[in-house]
Design a protein around this nucleic acid. Structure first.
Lengths: 336, 336
DNA sequence: TTGTAGGCGTTATCAG
DNA sequence: CTGATAACGCCTACAA
């Protein structure tokens, strides 16, 4: 079932059918009706590959996600779903590529096979080979997170440094003097993972300004590590009365540790950080936190990508989001 | 950069380049070398759309996931990642389509635009319009889960009825006499969601055989509902000493309810069910449960799909997996 | 072992 | 307003 068949049955030329469909040149109302009738009857839909070949665009985005071995966090997951949704709004499809390094086959297929019009890159590192690969290939792309020296590039990110600073100041205002940052894993920090490093910077800076005693602790991305990490913190620094975190995956373990130590939150201990709202709300008690606006970021990323695709010479834009900190019930005045 | 350019620089015809790449006809070693050198130098990769158009196959699968509004569970997520990974092994890409009903645009684009060679359909209902749509379109597909009367179709599923039965018998062996099934949401049951219905059937049957008092309770897919649900159960049926569940999303709430009621697991209460292994292990205490083998299911689904694509007249096959129940620490003899 | 040429299904240019 | 016709880049008979 191709456009020629439709043309034949409607008694017009193929180009007329094409134009009737795209509206790129006027077609008489009567002809359009006839064509539409035939199309409806035969259930015709243009062949995407042929169209892509002729148009030079695939109407498809590539979305590079962390490899399957890495457990996706809640925000990441929501982000993926939201990207697909946002793309669908613009009648675009999304091709998934789970890849870490740049020698990945599926990544290469996407970059170089002209299967996509642009790429959204999740979870980038401060120095990321994939970013270089993409700019070298001349393929439009938007990163979630930004490299160390973004220069002129397209990205959307959350201001981890700023948000963590605000969390610390919030705790300082409540009288806390000894605080800790439960960070992402050692490996991520070593690899140069922006959010982890920027959170550390914001944490130490704000703590310094307010004269707090502060410790930055890395914690693997799973509940067991969260539990162990929290217990170590309590042991090493018994005076700590509040924690800030960006490690969502560790939260269930932190919850268990709090229970086990019979620490009442927020009376005996305060907890806050940058956390997906759903997780913040599922915590007990609900966490005062900066909710990562995953849906909004996804929409923004798609918009930026489309802008770039439609006008390759456009000046690169970016967005550094600083969502509000939602006050819930996990932070309170220091009593310890 | 196209095949013609390579041919020119290598001093051969385009077909020779094509054959050198595909290996579908012998090419002299010297020529192959020359061609490969040029390709390496220019970084050429064939245009996927052109190839798809010529070959009549896209080397791409469609993966239909629940819409973004529905929160993806842990198993579902792992499944998505695993499908992409399994597809990559066969040099295939995966196009995502988040859709519930069958009037979905992205679903239609995939089905009818010949963008994919086949489709993997997650989370199907006992009577699912998308299944009809796909078979009508003549597009190869594999469902995760099976419709009410699968007849001759391709699917892979977990034997929920059998597994839940085994859980119940396990509890009966431990002396429990009053058990409850914490099921998925009302809406899913009403919509005809197979796992929920089959779990109910297996639960009631096994309970009947062993003469247990049994209740089937629906619970929305989130922690808050899990908490409320568990407390209602305790209130309505104080004699219940054990629960079986397939509702992963509700688990954190159940955990909280257990804590709140100061119920020691497994001394005072036993809990088991069909649960992703990671979640089972993150529970406190770790759950005795039938681990859903998401990775294996993904690999199987991809294999079945490829088999079907490569031989459209192949006899439909399916796989009903019955993973072992892993004994962890959440079930014990009844003391209540 | 290699080259020529037609076709895959669209879009877009150029005439009418 | 509408029809021919040439791309788009690759694959694959058919010839040599």
């Amino acid at each position: 079932m191709n456009i020629g068949e439709i043309a034949k049955r409607a008694g017009v030329s193929r180009s007329t059918v094409s134009y009737a469909l795209s509206g790129k040149r006027p077609v008489s109302a009567a002809t359009v009706r006839r064509i539409n009738d035939v199309i409806a009857e035969l259930g015709y839909r243009p062949n995407a590959s042929a169209r892509a070949l002729a148009e030079g665009r695939t109407r498809t985005f590539g979305l590079v996600i962390p490899p399957a071995s890495t457990r996706l966090t809640d925000v990441q997951l929501e982000f993926v779903a939201s990207v697909v949704e946002a793309a669908a709004v613009h009648d675009h499809d999304v091709l998934l590529s789970p890849s870490g390094g740049d020698h990945d086959r599926s990544f290469e297929r996407i970059v170089t096979g002209r299967r996509v019009d642009g790429v959204i890159l999740m979870e980038i590192l401060l120095a990321d080979p994939r970013v270089d690969r993409l700019s070298q290939a001349g393929l439009p792309f938007v990163t979630i997170g930004h490299v160390e020296h973004p220069g002129a590039s397209w990205w959307v990110d959350v201001d981890y440094a700023g948000l963590i600073s605000r969390c610390v100041r919030h705790l300082a205002d409540l009288g806390h003097q000894h605080v800790v940052l439960i960070n992402r894993s050692d490996e991520l920090v070593a690899a140069g993972y922006g959010p982890a490093l920027r959170s550390t910077a914001g944490f130490l800076e704000a703590a310094g300004q307010r004269g707090l005693t502060a410790h930055n602790v890395c914690c693997a991305d799973d509940p067991a590590a969260g539990l162990a990490c929290f217990e170590q913190i309590r042991e090493r620094w018994p005076g700590v009365t509040a924690a800030v975190t960006i490690n969502e995956a560790a939260l269930p373990g932190v919850q268990r540790a709090l229970h086990r130590a019979a620490l009442d939150v927020p009376r005996a201990f305060s907890l806050t950080g940058v956390i997906a709202d759903r997780l913040a709300e599922d915590f007990y008690p609900p966490l005062t936190a900066a909710d990562v606006p995953a849906r909004q970021m996804a929409r923004l990323a798609v918009d930026l990508l489309l802008e770039q695709i439609n006008d390759p010479s456009a000046t690169p834009r970016h967005a550094l989001l600083e969502p509000a900190i939602t006050l819930r019930s996990s932070t309170g005045a220091r009593h310890g």
